[in-house]
Structures are given as structure tokens and as C-alpha cells.
Nucleic acid binder design. Sequence first.
RNA 1: GCCCCUGUCGUCUAGUCCGGUCCAGGACGCCAGGUUCUCAUCCUGGAAACACGGGUUCGAAUCCCGUCAGGGGUACCA
Length: 489
Amino acid sequence: MTSPVRVRFAPSPTGYLHVGGARTALFNYLVARQSGGTYILRLEDTDTERNTDASVRTIYEGLRWIGLDPDEGPEQGGPKGPYRQSERDALYRSLADELLSRGGVYPCFCTKEHLSAMRERQIAARVTQRYDRTCRAIPRDAALARVKAGEPYTLRLNVPEGETLLPDLIRGDVLVKNEDIEDIILVRTGGAVVYNLAVVFDDHHMGVTHVIRGEDHLTNTFKQLCIYDAMGWERPKFAHLPLILAPAGEGKLSKRKHPEAALEWYQKKGYPPEALLNWICLLGWSYDDKTEIMTRDEMIARFSIERIVKSGARLNLEKLDWMSGDYIRRMPLERVVAEITPYLVEAGLVSASPNADEIEKIRAVAAAEQGRLRCWSQIVELAGWVFAKDVAFEAKAEANLTKRPDSADILRAYAAGLAGQSFDDPKVLESWARAWAGERGLGFGDIVHPIRAALTGRAQGPGLFDVHRILGRAACVARLEAAAAKIGG
RNA sequence: GCCCCUGUCGUCUAGUCCGGUCCAGGACGCCAGGUUCUCAUCCUGGAAACACGGGUUCGAAUCCCGUCAGGGGUACCA
């Protein structure tokens, strides 16, 4: 309330954009929007070994897809840039010098070999694994002299005595004894800074007021707090989000085992981004005991960090399907048409630039299947029968076809009867069909099932007379006769 | 091992701060019934939870302690 809110989403570009990352971005965005603040994207790419450009692109594209483009970031720039840590090294180095002169860090001359040997000894002795602070004991002047002499060194956090309190917006007060905070390396041999130092420098220099990130950073926070204190900087507020767990079984959501961990997976399946966002929003947060469906503006108006849940959330894909289906059902037909077309094209069911005839058919299919779709890609399996040259029969449909011994005769007679009928209005067609069945002493159900099977190869689908209209007279007659021939007689 | 976080129906959650109105509410999923030419939708009903053990109290899902379980961290990764 005092200073304008500035929040940031700070992923490291080492893989795909994780759903959990998307949620973190959303929560940050929501906090910014509801207070007229600024939402920043910063790429945490200080680990040059693991970063890839492809990953940077998936982050941009993923955020764009769900409508969470940042106000300031690598692509859009801003007053506090650059927004990639790899481009901020000069700042880091001068700040690291200052940290050293303030005594916030001390030079360490231990070699990697020495360190890993120490670690192994600690593991063997079943004792806490932590740097033993050997170099902390070196007198400051002596250490500085060795640095000046060119001896390789790293800079380690000089953790003070006492304890550190983190007033977390979600978790409440978390208190840690400083002896449990390790003197971690903040500056590598050669002068490159490490994540824990870069975040603090950046968050401070970018004017970040609220650090909202995953709980996996909770322990890091104590080290970062020490740095804020050593620099004499005001600390931002922290909120650590619960983690997202795998949908079934144990463990967290890992990209290797769970494809649904990647945001891209949802995009490929064709979930509407607004539905996905609504679902993600409810992962670890709720407005009250009833609200489920929310527009983006409602989320902005209602969101509050205080109502974020503390415990980890498991992914519930069935709920996403339900929610997505609900969104799709309420969409205007034109949107459905536009969304399903690329999937039909990709499946080779319609041509890349559909002709008038195909467009007409796509519209009819969209209208007929809208109520059944949970994501756009489902259109292919749901409506494949419309575009297929030959009808492929499901087992159940085949059974419906041959339930009566005189099925073939019925289908042929029905096909013949169709000749004089108008296909424009399904209702008119239906009343004709009912009468037609009645005249032959057949129940409506006796003809509906075999006809559906003959026309679509399926046992379920849109209303039978919508099916008629979608297919058109010629295709209906052809399919009825083909089915009759297939079952013989 | 050590440090930290968490623990309400299968899942997401409301309720927990300010003990009684909670023999615990909603949603998804599931089961049954209804509507319908099938499926989907829609409507009605149902099964389903306060991790466990001790306290405190007239009274605890709510407060305290312990146990157990799950998760995170423990790198010259982020």
C-alpha cells in the first residue's frame, strides 16, 4: 500500500514451462493487477551450462498462450533491465565487492576436492553435511592478501550469530537458528555469481516488493535474508507457495514421469487457456467454499495471498476436463469452429485450406459435438466418422447393426424411403422416421440403433437426425446400403 | 543423518487465527434414479474425510505435546 507493488516471475530456462511455474506467474500477475502494480519476468540464467534458447522460447510462448505477458521483461524491456541475469554480470560484480567490504562474505580457498572429501566424511559419520567454515577463521587481512596474490578463491556467505525470522505471508513466522544456515558459496571461482546472490541483487535493484515463489525456495530465503541484512537493504515481503504434486501415487510432479507437468502438454491437447487458467488458479487457492468458475477479472478482484493453502496440491485432471468442457459448451459456435479446424486439418480429415463444402461440414460438426468436447483435440476421435471415406465399426455399433435378423432389409428400405425427404430440418425428418417405423410395426428404438451404426459406425453420438443433416442424403443412402451389404442378405 | 514446511471425503477445498451454530459444507470423480433415439448435457438422490495417541476444557476438526505419514532443502544448480 505504501510503495507501488512490484512482483516478478523468475523461472530458470532449463526445460519446459512447468504448470507450477504457470501458477506462480498467475499469482504474481494477479497480485500486480489488483493493486495496479507491475508484473516482471526475469530469466534466472546464471547457470550457463543448463540454459537453452529453446527453453527461453517455451517460457515466452507459454506465458503468451495463457495471457500472462509481463509488463517488464526481456522481450518488452523496462526501466530496470536487462531482465536476463546473464546480462547483469557487471552489476553483480560491483555489488559483490561491496558485500565483501561490508563483511557479508569472506574469501574461501578450499578446493573442490577438499570440499567433496569433507562431504563424504560427513556422510560416513552420519553427521550434518555443511561447510565447516575453515576459511572463515583466516584473518581478514591475510585472506585479502592471498586474493590479491592471485590465489583462486570463492566468496562465502558470512552467516552471523543468532537466529533469523522469516515472516512468510502464507506460512506465518518461520524461525531458524543461524547455525543451521550454511556459509554457502555466493561467488564462484572466477567471479561469476550464484543464484542466491543474484536474486537478492536483482530483487532489490528491480524494486521488487513481494517475492512470490514456490516452497522449494523456502530454505534459500534464510540465506538471502542474511544478504539483505549485510547490505543494509530493506527486505521485501515473502510468500512461499505450496508445491504441486503428482496426480497419483507419491512424489512431486516431475517432467520425466509426468507429461502433464509441462504447460505445452495442455496446449497441444487443446484446452482453452481461460479454462486452464481457472483450473490452475484453484490449485492451492480458493475464494470461498463455493466459487469454481471465474473470469480473469473476477480472479483479479478476488485473489488474496492470505487465502492460499499451505499444503501441496495434487493435479486433478478429471476436474480440468469437466471445467474445460463447461467453458467449451458456453462458447460461441464460431470459436469452436475456429479452434477445431486446425486439429481436423492436422489429422488429414479436411484439407489445409478447407473449401466451402468442408467449411459447411466443420460448422455442422462443431455444432453437433460442442456439448461433448473437453478439449479441441478430441474432435478428431469424436467426429472422425463424418469425414472418413469408409465407415469403421466399433464393436458395440456392429452389435447394434445385427441385433435383428431383418436389419439389412430395414436399412435398405429406410434408405429408399429417405429419397423423398427433406434434410433441412431434423425435426421434420424425425417425425417422418417415426411414422415410417410405425407403419412397419417397428419401435423407434428398433431403427435408431442400427441406422446410427450404419451411418457413423458408432453406438453413440449426436442426435440421429443431426447426423443425417451433417452427412447429407447421398452419403446417408450410400452408408445405409454399404452397411446392409456388409451384414449380408 | 540434519534443517524446514504440511497433514479435513479418492482428488481440489470450506471450516482451524476468535473452541460450541460441523453427528463437518461445496466441487470433480464414482454409484443409483429421472429426462432423451444413443452419448453428452441437465435434474434428483447416495456412498465417501477431521492421520494416530495423549493432554487442556463442561465441550476440540479447531488450543498444547508427542508419534506417524507426505513434501522441500541439504551443489562453485536454480
